[in-house]
Design a binder for these strands. Structure first.
Length: 935
DNA sequence: GACATCACG
DNA sequence: GACGTACGTGATGTCC
């Protein structure tokens, strides 16, 4: 440090406003991506060009002797402690810009220019402090920026330079801009405020008026003290009323010239870049032109950049960094943890994984947290592991040694996990976010490798970590079973010895980070960034909240129904044994089949592929027309289903703490974009039979509330009408006609006023069949008509609506060509089986026809759900459940109508503005004390 | 753990 | 010309 000459007279410091460079570069260039992997790189390219042009231009007597690029540190600054709304209305950095922030630091260092940022301060403060130091030492300083907030620093050897316009700004320039000299800029800004930074200022006073006042009264303090003297009554009152706010504003705009810096002016001395380092960086970024140009100037050989690197989509390249579970570290004190937090700040991202005592997010305890910022470098923070059970079979409740306190760790992690400038990366973020939420941490923003995979590869494979790691990293992770065991002897994670836990948990974070690095650029390449960012990622907090809120279920209602079912079933069982002439297990399809088709020798029995007699409901229904036995079996089966799956099982899912049922939605469960619901499944609660529907009476609103249900009417048919472009159908929807009756009328030439329910029913079956990729066989079975007749129906339908056949043929052809189909919103559903030969071919083709329709409907309700929390935030209403085309809310009695109105608008307009459908979306609403009434 | 059955959209 | 099919899910019980 002592080698450099002292900064003083004759020295000239240049300070570059790094953030301004980045944003200017970002907006000036198209969204370039790195050829080999699609990493967004446009802002870095522009940044490097600007930096290079700047260095090139620094010749002659006025060249700087010292230089630094100053960046804003991610996260909040001390100004947020003064005013929590400071810069609060600033939108987050664009998605494709964020990963470029750290790269611009790397670029600065590659050019061998000092690169500075300090936590808790803005770049402007560092610039202010350095400028003052330079001035005090008798040297000069040029600030390369056009930010008006820096103009207060101008004067006495400090100037600004607008690099784009190549215009210097001195004291006169400041007067031109603010109407006052640099020393009064702060006063003017305090009065005028700043909408960009959300500095309030004095209402109704702009720069012009502010300058007028300051020039008249000398300075801000005098002005405020003598505010009574102001002639204009309104202006006078404003200043008197808002004195505190104006003084706060002054604090906000006043830059800190006296920061403690851990580097000296001397350390910023201009140095030549190291050609090798610079070349390596530029080549790594694949900047072909710039690399060549700078290589020539430096007189070195330009490194070769492969023209078209092989697409790295599937298996990992063999030369990738191997996994080494022994390299992972165990973090057990605050100092070590703080280092990891610092790494996250530096990088702007961090992969996080939580370990818990089980899978039920509402009940389990946090056991530890693993982190990873750089591939191959991961740690585990054990928090509540229990002491080993060396000779005590039951283990111990005492905490194991070598762990930091849970609260201490969370206190350190919370600001980072909530920092808007740091992306937290998870595999299945919803799980971890719910856990963190229970510990008072609201994690944001996030990325989720599971959802990225789903957006890119739905239909190709599942999206669990094991599958993804195997497929994309060629690595088999440690199996959780080897740590926990299986079945009855399985232990919970808090009983796992620390050294094993570190390897397993840290590896998961490492895998997550590596998957993210691999997937991120692929999202662009596969053109699903919008799907991921608008239809997948924003749902994580929405679903988390719905799941955590849960739905109130009345245990007594269920319990009474269970008892009633049990009684009836016992009666049916006795009857059935009597009829069979022997006791048998009514729940065994094999035994029922034997009795029906062997003992009773009934006709029409078919066998399943395993050789058993097949006894599904439709077969038994046919037999029930003539025999009591199959009719009774059906009765029994219905009650058995209701009891075991619903009235019994649902009670076990009532959370002991909340008294409510908390389902879990799987965002990646259905390939079409639908959600699935599990533990328990609340998307298949009975409704079609009277008996079953009564189960919904147990789903109730809390005291003083109502349940409301809003469902899309015929959404899939509407989408079909739009996509296939069927004018008659579209018009019918626009006119609000009964679509099935209309179809029947068109097909069978029956006037609407002479429509019979049976003809309408047949048309309805055809309409549904079309959505499913109609076949004569399927329609025949559904309508119980001969196959030839079904084929006639279908032919007539296609004749009447030729657009439908075109849509089906086009969709099939598209799928065969591309191996995927698409929704209106760009969601891709892969169809790897579409070109299969043989009997399976039909399956894939029908799925291909159905997927765009079902998927588009799923996209639309997803869009509604993403917008819903903001829309209802001021209403006493909560969104509880989603059942594919229906949303259920719990709402205070006095806000029922308002909520319906708001939620309906959101749902009906959910396709817009992305898509303007040719058909209206209609949402029906129901209200009740329970779900049966509301539906 | 595979299979059959049945609940939903 | 025969093959065997409606599309998408999850939970439960039997049986091996």
């Amino acid at each position: 440090m002592g080698e450099q000459a002292k900064f003083g007279k004759g020295c000239h410091l240049h300070l570059i406003d790094g953030s301004a460079f980045i944003f200017r570069a970002y907006h000036a260039l198209p969204p370039l991506t790195r050829k080999s992997d699609g990493l967004p790189i446009g802002a870095v390219a522009g940044f490097c060009n600007m930096l290079h042009r700047y260095v090139e231009g620094n010749t002659g007597p006025d060249a700087p002797t010292h230089v630094a690029v100053i960046f804003d540190h991610s996260g909040k600054s001390f100004r947020n402690d003064l005013y929590d709304q400071y810069k609060a209305n600033r939108p987050p950095a664009p998605e494709d810009l964020r990963p470029q922030f750290p790269l611009t630091r790397d670029a600065t260092r590659a050019f061998n220019i000092a690169c500075k940022e300090i936590e808790g301060f803005e770049a402007d403060d560092i610039i202010a402090t350095l400028a003052c130091q330079a001035r005090d030492a008798g040297g000069r300083c040029t600030i390369i920026s056009s930010d008006k907030d820096l103009m207060q620093l101008v004067g006495d050897g400090v100037e600004m330079l607008d690099a784009m316009k190549n215009k210097r700004i001195d004291s006169d320039g400041v007067v031109e801009k603010f109407g006052v000299g640099p020393d009064r800029v702060v006063d003017v800004q305090a009065l005028a405020g700043d909408s960009v930074d959300n500095v309030p200022g004095a209402p109704g006073i702009g720069v012009k008026t502010a300058a007028l006042l300051i020039n008249e009264y000398g300075d801000l303090t005098s002005l405020l003290d003598r505010a009574e003297e102001i002639k204009q009554p309104k202006r006078r009152q404003t200043l008197i009323d808002n004195r505190a706010q104006i003084e706060l504003s002054r604090q906000l705009v006043q830059l800190d010239c006296e920061m403690e810096l851990d580097f000296s002016l001397e350390s910023l001395e201009v140095q030549d870049p190291d050609p090798e380092t610079l070349m390596h960086f530029l080549a790594d970024m694949e900047f072909r032109t710039l690399t060549k140009r700078i290589a020539e100037q430096l007189g070195v050989e330009a490194p070769v950049i492969a023209e078209a690197a092989p697409a790295k989509t599937e298996a990992a390249a063999p030369d990738e960094l191997p996994f080494d579970v022994d390299s992972y570290t165990c973090v057990s004190d605050a100092a070590a943890l703080n280092e990891w937090v610092a790494k996250a700040h530096k990088r702007g991202w961090i992969a996080v994984d939580t370990e818990t005592t089980g899978l039920n997010e509402m009940q389990v305890d946090l056991v530890g947290i693993s982190l990873c910022v750089e591939a191959g470098e991961a740690c585990y923070i054990p928090l509540t592991h229990k002491k080993g059970a060396s000779d005590d079979l039951f283990g111990s409740d005492d905490l194991a040694e070598g762990q930091m306190g849970l609260n201490e760790a969370l206190d350190i992690l919370k600001p980072m996990l909530e920092d808007p400038a740091i992306i937290k990366i998870f595999q299945n973020a919803k799980y971890d976010c719910k856990i963190f939420k229970r510990y008072g941490v609201s994690v944001a923003p996030i990325d989720d490798t599971m959802l990225m995979s789903y957006a890119m590869n739905a239909g190709e494979h599942n999206h669990g970590m094991d599958v993804l790691s195997e497929r994309y990293l060629s690595h088999n992770p440690i199996s959780i079973k080897t740590l926990l065991g299986t079945g009855k002897s399985a232990i919970t994670f808090d009983k796992v010895p620390l050294e094993d836990a570190v390897k397993y948990a840290a590896e998961d974070a490492d895998i997550t980070l590596r998957l993210w690095q691999k997937f991120k650029p692929q999202l662009h390449q596969k053109q699903v960034t919008t799907v991921y960012e608008t239809l997948e990622r924003p749902l994580v907090p929405v679903l988390s909240e719905m799941e955590m809120h849960g739905v109130l279920v009345d245990r007594d209602t269920l319990s009474r129904m269970s008892n009633s079912f049990a009684q009836k079933m016992a009666g049916f069982e006795a009857e059935l044994h009597e009829m069979a002439g022997k006791p048998f297990n009514v729940q065994s399809p094999a035994q029922v089949g034997q009795i029906l088709f062997e003992d009773m020798a009934l006709e029409g029995g078919k066998k399943t592929k395993t050789g058993q007699w097949s006894t599904p409901a439709d077969v038994l229904e046919d037999l029930a027309a003539t025999h009591d036995f199959p009719a009774r079996v059906l009765d029994y089966r219905q009650l058995q289903k209701l009891k075991s799956t619903y009235t019994d099982a649902l009670q076990d899912h009532i959370d002991p703490d909340t008294g409510r049922v908390h389902t879990s939605y799987s965002q990646t469960g259905a390939n079409t974009g639908r959600f699935s619901s599990n533990d328990p499944n609340l998307q298949n609660i009975p409704v079609r039979t009277e008996e079953g529907r009564r189960i919904r009476e147990a789903f109730v609103a809390a005291e003083g509330n109502k349940l409301i249900s809003l469902d899309y009417s015929q959404i899939e048919l509407r989408i079909l009408a739009h996509i296939a472009g069927i004018d008659t159908l579209k018009q019918a929807f626009r006119d609000g006609h009964d679509i099935h009756a209309m179809t029947a009328s068109e097909m069978f030439d029956v006037p609407l006023d002479q429509m019979t329910p049976d003809v309408r029913r047949q048309a309805k079956a055809i309409n549904f069949g079309v959505i499913y990729g109609i076949s004569a066989f399927g329609l025949a079975r559904n309508l119980r008509i001969p196959r030839g007749e079904a084929q006639d129906f279908i032919n007539r339908y296609f004749e009447r609506f030729p657009g439908i056949r075109t849509y089906m043929d086009d969709t099939k052809a598209f799928a065969k060509e591309n191996l995927y189909v698409q929704t209106l919103f760009g969601r891709k559903i892969h169809m790897p089986q579409i070109n299969a030969k043989g009997p399976h071919a039909g399956f894939a083709q029908r799925a291909a026809i159905n997927a765009p329709i079902q998927g588009t409907a799923a996209d639309i309700i997803r869009r509604a759900m993403v917008r819903m929390p903001e829309a209802i935030k001021d209403l006493p209403a909560k969104m509880l459940l989603q059942v594919h085309d229906e949303l259920i809310f719990e709402v205070s009695e006095d806000a029922v109508e308002d909520t319906i109105s708001v939620a309906r608008d959101i749902m009906q307009g959910a396709a817009e503005p992305a898509i303007k459908l040719d058909v209206p979306l209609v949402v029906d609403a129901g209200i009740g004390d329970n779900w049966a009434e509301a539906h």
